[in-house]
Simulated assay, not measured.
Amino acid sequence: MANRFLAGYHAAFNQYGIWLSVPGVDVTASGPAANFLLRPDFKCEQIIISGRVAVAAGFNVDVMLPITVPTKRPYVQFGVAQSGVGQYPHDLSMIGTTAQIECIGGCLFRSDRLTFSNSNASGFTFYYDYLVFQRGIN
């Protein structure tokens, strides 16, 4: 029985993404487009993980990735807000707020996780909306 689904690194194609092969075809082998129902080069982007995390002042929060990406790095997009009301992928209400609060936060990408930090001394909780995706060029 052939494996039909692979999420992560595909050695034969030398890239990360999601593959689904047709019945009877091993997904780990390279081959023509007709052998696959889903391949990263069929689409422009594939989302690896997305979501929202709250980080209290003075803390870091790790979000584990569903796959380890040791040599290839996917794209990471994130936005930070002071409101718990989410708007995917970013909280657009950040624009034009009356209070000026310095955002001392950030995101660090590692091969197996995202680390979000909040070094704000004012005591505000930051809400990070994040999106990690693989982008293929057609």
Rank of each mutant, 00 (worst) to 15 (best):
F59W: 13
V25C: 09
R110P: 13
P32V: 12
D112N: 10
N60C: 12
R39P: 00
D91E: 07
I18R: 08
L131V: 06
N120I: 07
F124I: 10
G106I: 01
D112M: 04
S21I: 05
V69N: 15
Q87D: 13
T115G: 01
W19T: 00
Q100G: 15
N35M: 04
Y9L: 05
E45D: 12
F36H: 04
T68H: 09
N14C: 00
L108A: 15
G8E: 02
V27Y: 02
I47Y: 07
F126W: 07
D26P: 10
V53W: 04
L37A: 09
F42T: 07
Y16L: 12
T71Y: 13
D91Q: 04
P74F: 06
Q77P: 09
Y16E: 07
L20F: 08
D91N: 08
F78P: 03
F59H: 15
V80M: 07
F5M: 13
Y75V: 14
C103A: 15
Q77G: 15
G123C: 00
G84F: 04
Y127S: 01
S111P: 11
L65P: 05
P32A: 12
G105H: 03
R39C: 01
I18P: 05
C44I: 13
A34G: 09
L92I: 10
Q134L: 11
A7C: 11
D112G: 06
Y16K: 07
N118P: 03
W19K: 00
W19F: 00
P32C: 05
H10M: 03
V61W: 02
H10T: 03
I101K: 11
D41K: 05
P40S: 04
L20M: 06
G8Q: 01
T98W: 12
N3D: 14
V55E: 03
S30N: 08
W19V: 01
S111T: 14
A81Q: 08
P66A: 05
D41F: 02
G24H: 06
I48R: 04
C103Q: 13
Y75K: 12
N118E: 03
E102K: 14
Y127N: 01
I101F: 14
V61G: 00
P40T: 04
N60S: 15
D112A: 05
R110Q: 14
K72G: 14
D112V: 03
T98K: 14
N120G: 09
V61C: 00
C107Q: 05
A99S: 13
G58M: 01
Y130C: 02
I48Q: 00
A54P: 01
S21W: 02
L131D: 04
S50R: 13
N60F: 09
G123Y: 02
W19E: 00
T115R: 08
V69H: 12
P89M: 00
G86W: 10
A57I: 08
V53F: 05
